[in-house]
Computed example of a mutant assay.
Amino acid sequence: MVSAFPLVRTASPLPADQRAAILDAPGFGLHFTDHMAFASWTPEAGWHDRRIQALQPFSLHPSAAVLHYAQEIFEGLKAYRHADGSVWLFRPESNARRFRRSAERMRLPQLPEQDFFASIEALIRADEPWVPAGTGTVSLYLRPFMFAAEAFLGVRPSRRVVYSVIACPAQPYFNPGGVTLWVSTTYTRAAVGGTGAAKCGGNYGASLAAQTEAERHGCDQVLYVDGADEEACIEESGAMNLFFVTTRGELVTPALGTILEGITRDTVLMLASEFGLTPVERAVPLAELRAGLADGTVTEVFAAGTAAVITPVTGIKGDGYAFMIGGGKPGELSLALRERILDIQYGRVADTHGWLRSVV
């Protein structure tokens, strides 16, 4: 049985002319649609009170568990307007599964996958005029999230949880022309047994110090490694998974375990062979990457994520070293992979993998 998120339409939608002005230059995460999805959970009632309602603030008691113990998770996916006006999601089943895994790690209740799909699709239908048109790279970014809402002070799983979805029109998060990364040996993102594989807010809050460190060194983002010694291995960037193209025709990415299982990461691995690349998932020592950049056996580096799609890496710096990659210009394979993913998402080429899900 498909779950229903009935629509309680807002009495004050943003006027059409103001919405059009936003869609012309939306930025990222700055302007939000008229509605939001909502559901609540308790042990006694399970998931209940499902609805699409007017976008509005939450009312939380100052002792709400999320404010003190960071029991929270989220997801990120996009809705794409095709040339015929239809609206599609890209691999939402993978987001739903990762949302459940994150909930299990953070001891939050499991949201049924049919609720995940129903809430997102109902919100898109309610706010369909907010999905940008055109053949560029703008889309409607969707943020499902869940948090501990019980009013109490004590370290245990919350007995009241809120689930919601909000949406915002969005341009690419990073400059597609390329970013530079700072290798931090001061901060680590995660450890074995930690929350690195979960998409929880605490991971990102803890990354801000490393991001600030990268900016002090003139870089756009941080590149994490798993230690400070010569045996340290690459993990990921501050908000993206990393890939390395080699002269042997390999597309190498750090293995899973302490890093986020990115959906764009998996997409790139599945597309690699179509570009003559052999996908390889393994530990990548920092020393190996530095040697490959120095002798030219690593020819391209790029990062991948939902918000970023594919972002070329044009420089990597660390304490006492700096490498320019590809003469400071995006690599051909990086750009080709990016274009292929966008073409599938926007319906410009056939979806031979069955990744698209129709909404409107």
Rank of each mutant, 00 (worst) to 15 (best):
Q71P: 01
Q71A: 03
Q71T: 05
Q71V: 03
E72Y: 07
G76Q: 07
L77V: 02
A79P: 05
Y80G: 08
Y80Q: 08
R81L: 04
D84Q: 12
V87D: 01
V87H: 06
V87P: 02
L89Q: 05
F90Q: 06
S94H: 10
R97L: 11
R97I: 13
R97W: 09
R97F: 08
R98L: 14
F99E: 08
F99N: 07
F99P: 06
F99K: 09
S102Q: 10
S102L: 10
E104Q: 09
R105Q: 05
M106F: 07
P112D: 10
E113P: 07
E113G: 10
E113Q: 14
Q114F: 12
F117G: 15
S119P: 08
I120E: 12
E121N: 13
A122R: 05
A122E: 14
L123S: 05
L123E: 07
I124H: 03
R125Y: 14
R125C: 14
D127G: 13
E128L: 15
E128F: 08
V131R: 10
A133D: 07
G134L: 15
T135L: 15
G136E: 11
G136M: 15
T137H: 14
V138G: 11
V138M: 15
V138W: 11
S139N: 06
S139A: 11
L140P: 07
Y141E: 11
L142M: 15
R143Q: 13
R143N: 13
F145C: 09
F147P: 06
F147K: 03
F152S: 05
F152W: 04
P157G: 07
R159A: 00
R159L: 00
R160D: 04
Y163I: 01
Y163D: 01
Y163A: 02
S164A: 07
S164K: 02
I166Q: 00
A170Y: 03
Q171C: 02
N175M: 08
P176F: 08
P176D: 12
G177W: 04
G177Y: 05
G178I: 00
G178C: 06
V179R: 05
V179A: 13
T180D: 10
L181A: 03
L181N: 04
L181P: 00
W182I: 02
S184Q: 09
T185H: 09
T186W: 13
Y187I: 03
T188K: 04
T188D: 04
T188V: 09
R189Y: 07
R189D: 08
R189E: 04
A191R: 07
V192P: 08
G193C: 02
G194P: 00
G196P: 03
A197C: 05
A197Q: 09
C200F: 07
